[in-house]
Design a protein around this nucleic acid. Sequence first.
DNA 1: CGCAGACTTGAAGATTATCAACCACCGTGG
DNA 2: CCACGGTGGTTGATAATCTTCAAGTCTGCG
Lengths: 231, 231
Amino acid sequence: MQFVQSPPLAIALTAQEMDTLRLLNVCSKYYPARTLISRQGEIESRIFVIQSGWASVHRDLASGDRQIIDTPLIGDIIGVRASEGPNNNSLSSISAVSLFEIPRQLLGRTLFTQGRPASLFARVVARQHSILIEHLTNAGRRNALVRTAHYLLELRERLAVFGMVEDNGFNCPLTQQELADVLGLTTIHVNRTLRELRERELLSFRRGFVEFIDRQSLVKLCCFDADYLDL
Amino acid sequence: MQFVQSPPLAIALTAQEMDTLRLLNVCSKYYPARTLISRQGEIESRIFVIQSGWASVHRDLASGDRQIIDTPLIGDIIGVRASEGPNNNSLSSISAVSLFEIPRQLLGRTLFTQGRPASLFARVVARQHSILIEHLTNAGRRNALVRTAHYLLELRERLAVFGMVEDNGFNCPLTQQELADVLGLTTIHVNRTLRELRERELLSFRRGFVEFIDRQSLVKLCCFDADYLDL
DNA sequence: CGCAGACTTGAAGATTATCAACCACCGTGG
DNA sequence: CCACGGTGGTTGATAATCTTCAAGTCTGCG
């Protein structure tokens, strides 16, 4: 990985911009897999940037159900909200995760007022907005098969930017339960859906590896257009 | 309406801040009901602020389906995205709408670098993010009845800020088709769901008016918590 | 080896969609 | 003034999708 000194933002920073970021008192932290990092309903004064690993931003409902809003990956920024009130969603690690924790106040003061880093953050946030829109479209208007395919293709694109896609697939630590919570389905139905994708020889997801068997057909199946992921 | 000179942002601006906004070359425009204002896939250099009326931000799919991402109302800001590429969703009017159109570039240059108006915009954007998260949670993890109730309660809160809620309800120009596209349901199922809400004596939505019959029970039914709408 | 968590399968049931009518309201034009 | 057409709303019957419940099986790991 070529990003060690500064938060990985999928865009190279100039030396001066990195200085700006260093001013932010950025500290790096490590969390083991399946750990709650920030709890819904509590005041959260940090902003996070994923350095490595898979995380999950989710909402837990009184019913016991859970909706995963997004699975932020390397370079993604979490928690850029302006209001001071309690956070309305939780952040957990899925795999082991290391991330930068930036005091929110510092971000507001220095980062958003200094040219390119500011617009860079704005871009990443805008992309997350696009991702969120796509997830809503998934949940609202696509069936289980298409929805699953779409999300896994999205992950591929997001990981590819960081060279984390091998020849025909990528490592994916999500359980079927987590995938279900992303897609708004039950675990069991995700299982059947993955089986159908396998039987149709489109993709296989086994033992933590998503393998694209016929990616072209898959893209066609769900009308996947990666434009929304562009920074 | 007390907001005529400056974009209505649900927060009062100081005179100086209004000057900043006036610098932005803000022009006000009117669109009749059911008009396409900005088309998905095209480059959009404007940012919109709703002055009055109901609009709809939506994604149109190749299948012919449509997902309404949000129905922005008075004071809402639309199109704050940093990337220069084509927009990935459309903006249409639902009722007749008048809105401010702000050149994107001006916004980036002056607004985001000037103290409170900047953080004010950031807040509104953060709130829209919260709303989007709630809509995703709706589509992913709540059934038709709860989902519908939740959305209509959300609209009530959003309109109440601007004094647009009468005693026990509010005017709502949404058709059942549009409501279906917000909620990720079919028109027919929305119709049945509204009937059930009526039969259970929770709320009635007829002739463009949403009337809350038993709002307390409704809030309880869908565990509605308006915190996410706070600015 | 044995345990726990994750995955898999079947059967049955609930929810939501699809198809096909029909109704009601409203503005228009004869 | 009333027939007409169009849009939006309503209803029933049927089908697809997805969930629930219940019972395994597999797999990695101590």
